[in-house]
Amino acid sequence: MAKTIKSRAKAKGGEVTVKALISHPMETGLRKNKKTGKNFPAHFIQEVTASANGKQVLVAEWGGAVSKNPYLSFKYNGKAGDKVTISWVDNKGEKDSATTSVR
């Protein structure tokens, strides 16, 4: 699968800020295809999991109201050198995962 996650993590004073961009259409299922008159089928990320050094930090449950090519940022107690893994699963069962080290 093509790489869909771009992430960056930076430590500052015992706190790590993680920023991630995921490329995904985030189709709500309500938008109309003008050519066919039918709605585009729903296709959005339902769950994003983030962990640091194998320990779960955050689980994000998303609906179709999250923007296309979603951006996610969060903070946790950690340090430089931590391995931050971000993975997502969408409503079609597609998924991806990426790991970055904290700078």
Partner: peptide
């Protein structure tokens, strides 16, 4: 409902994302 973030004890009370309105 746009998003729900479940935080573990490691996570700080801070989340940022982009939503549709």
């Amino acid at each position: 409902l746009a998003a729900n973030f479940k935080l573990s004890s490691l996570a700080k009370g801070y989340v940022s994302t982009r939503v549709k309105m």
